[in-house]
Amino acid sequence: MRQIILDTETTGLSPRAGNRILEIGCVEMLNRQLTGNNLHMYINPERDSEEGALNVHGLTTEFLSDKPKFAEISAEFLDYVRGAQIIIHNAPFDVGFLDAELDRLGLPPFVEHVDEVIDSLQMAKEIHPGRRNSLDALCDRYGISNAHRTLHGGLLDAVLLAEVYLALTRGQNSLTMDLGGDQDGDDGQPLELAPLAPVIVLAAEGNDLVEHEALLDGLDKDAKGTCLWRVVPVEEAPAPAA
């Protein structure tokens, strides 16, 4: 499955007020694995940012003045996202701006170019009802470092959201195979399953251990105590020989 985690930065809060997109960041995942095939575009919005928005993203009119306009990058952008499952935090906001930009060019709405749009904010609200579910709050909850995020940025936020989405949707598949119904072959004899391949165990080390401890710290914080993963059962000592 091809998934694109997408984030935009804009000149203000409402496309109806004439605000425009000035940055797009996209991160690609194939079968839940980051590919590195990312897309990052600065866009000349053809207007100034509102003061509140400028304080959020820090992208000045002067910096954006020589960047391509949305019409110039629209084909490349749509080719990149076409047919993918799109993941956006607070999707109605970004999709509303994308629809407005596409409408200016006489193009169909964004959802008609992609497979579907998933709102990770709505997903987080269902998993953590009654709690703060901003991107920063979710990074803190799942032990994802965002210390380098002093300003919002399309690509940076998309990278963080990719990690948050993987944490939100983390699950464990069954280690057994359910054949369903009778487990006999055509000749009425029981089916014989091929022997399982040897299990290769790789011990964690280095950065893996650091990231694991950070995740456990986050679980401890959510549990307001010690999570089960840190409760190691005490093995009984062998009985002394007679």
Rank of each mutant, 00 (worst) to 15 (best):
N38V: 11
A158M: 00
L64M: 01
D208T: 14
L215N: 09
D115W: 02
R82I: 15
A137I: 01
Q189S: 15
S14W: 09
E211G: 03
A162Y: 06
E46F: 00
G25R: 00
L102F: 04
V111L: 07
E235C: 12
I86L: 03
E72H: 02
C26R: 02
A204T: 15
D187P: 03
F70P: 05
P195C: 01
E126T: 11
L196K: 12
A75C: 11
R104T: 05
A241H: 14
N133L: 03
L64W: 05
P198Q: 04
K224H: 13
V232S: 08
Y80H: 11
I127C: 12
G83A: 05
N44D: 03
T226S: 11
E213M: 13
E213T: 13
P190T: 02
G181E: 11
Q183A: 15
F77I: 00
S74C: 15
E112L: 00
T61I: 02
E116P: 09
R141T: 01
D178P: 05
S120H: 10
P233R: 07
C26W: 00
R132M: 04
N133Q: 06
V234Q: 13
E51C: 02
S74N: 12
R20Y: 00
L155K: 07
L151H: 01
L121D: 01
L156C: 12
D182K: 09
G12I: 06
L166P: 04
G96I: 03
T226C: 11
L22D: 02
N133T: 08
V56M: 10
Q33N: 13
V159W: 11
Q189P: 08
Y80G: 00
S134V: 06
P108W: 01
H40S: 15
Q33C: 14
E112P: 02
G206T: 09
L151G: 07
C227P: 08
G225Y: 06
V81N: 01
E28W: 11
I21E: 06
L193D: 04
S134T: 08
L202Y: 12
C139D: 01
P45V: 01
G153L: 00
M1H: 07
D99Y: 09
D222F: 07
T8K: 02
S49E: 10
V234H: 11
M123S: 00
A137R: 02
P68Y: 06
T11F: 04
I5M: 09
E213W: 03
F70Q: 04
A91I: 03
L107C: 07
S65D: 11
N90M: 07
N19C: 05
